[in-house]
Design a binder for these strands. Structure first.
Lengths: 182, 182
DNA sequence: GGACCCATGTAAATAGTTACATGATTGC
DNA sequence: GCAATCATGTAACTATTTACATGGGTCC
């Protein structure tokens, strides 16, 4: 589970509550590792059980009390270990391709409209990654190395989305030609 | 769950056993919707409960008995409904990008070796999609429309993998330059 | 005798989503 | 008065993976 290591990664920078973590995730890695609040709180408990983080309750008078988690020495060790480890790419899944695969008996116009819908969704994601909002996050990096890494990550999304859009447009064109011939 | 619709899709072509389905999946959509035997048998029971398929036991003398499933009218209806439906693209997840994101304090040489490992895995997948084995599956399509669809699907994988490899190589180059400067 | 094909299933673990549930303070 | 922010959690459901479990027939 990457969420465990995501949390270790964020806590390595500074102690945080579940609530803080949710905000950090939404602001940074949400577009390649989204997470929900309920999952974060559950995972924090698991990590505490494994002694990789430790929680301490902070009593606040004006706001609700909160539980601030800190990385333990074992947690930091586990983080570095995972970061250095070569990861196996999990199998690729695309329900859209499954749909397309079984569409052989469908009217080509429906297939085209599904492809167009797919492409439009990809374009929305691309627009976000190319927006100032996403680009400005690169500037959040402190060191030159950090900036270089953020840049590379954003480029990954942009690069892949563009190529998926290209494929969709090319495929739409091909099916149009197919209709005209038949 | 796409496996349900995958099964409906295959049973639409011909009645099959769980064992047959596993083989069909491994031979065709395994690279964009892999599935395990245990999941197939469980899903068959669920679909039977929903009356979308119906199973009949065939007694064999030389081989173990088998349960052959057939698509019901309701099942076919559900299949066509799902095939025509615009799908929402699920959020993108990449544990590799999570790893990269937190690698800011790591030695750049480790980051590069992780990137190279990632690229090598992508290249293996690409080699498979470009192999005769994968290409020959396009010929399995009966109608011209079916062949066009198979072609489009294989191209999707090739197109995206090539662009991911491009990105990885570009990023490796960038990090190398970074090392030389510092 | 061992590997592979045919054929079926259960159980447990892991990961993630959606819905439910509460409650104080701050700003418009 | 209402929405937003801060803050924490539980419960139920969905989906997937891995491991366990069995057993006959065929081919080398």
């Amino acid at each position: 589970m990457s969420l465990k290591h995501t949390i270790l990664g964020f806590l390595n920078a500074a102690p945080k509550t579940g609530y803080d973590l949710q905000k950090s995730i939404d602001l940074s890695i949400q577009h390649f590792w989204p997470s929900t609040q309920s999952q974060i709180y559950r995972t924090l408990k698991e990590l505490e059980g494994e002694k990789l983080i430790s929680g301490e309750i902070h009593i606040q008078s004006e706001k609700p009390n909160k539980k601030v988690y800190t990385l333990t020495a074992a947690g930091q060790e586990e983080l570095v270990r995972w970061l250095s480890e070569p990861l196996v790419i999990p199998p690729h899944r695309s329900q859209f391709l499954v749909q397309l695969f079984f569409s052989r008996h469908l009217d080509p116009s429906i297939i085209i409209s599904n492809l167009e819908n797919h492409r439009n969704q990809l374009e929305k994601r691309l627009a976000f990654l190319e927006s100032d909002e996403a680009q400005s996050r690169i500037e959040l990096g402190r060191s030159a190395q950090e900036k270089a890494i953020y840049q590379i990550i954003i480029e990954n999304g942009i690069h892949i989305l563009k190529s998926e859009i290209e494929w969709a447009n090319h495929s739409i064109g091909r099916l149009y030609k197919f209709i005209q011939k038949n």
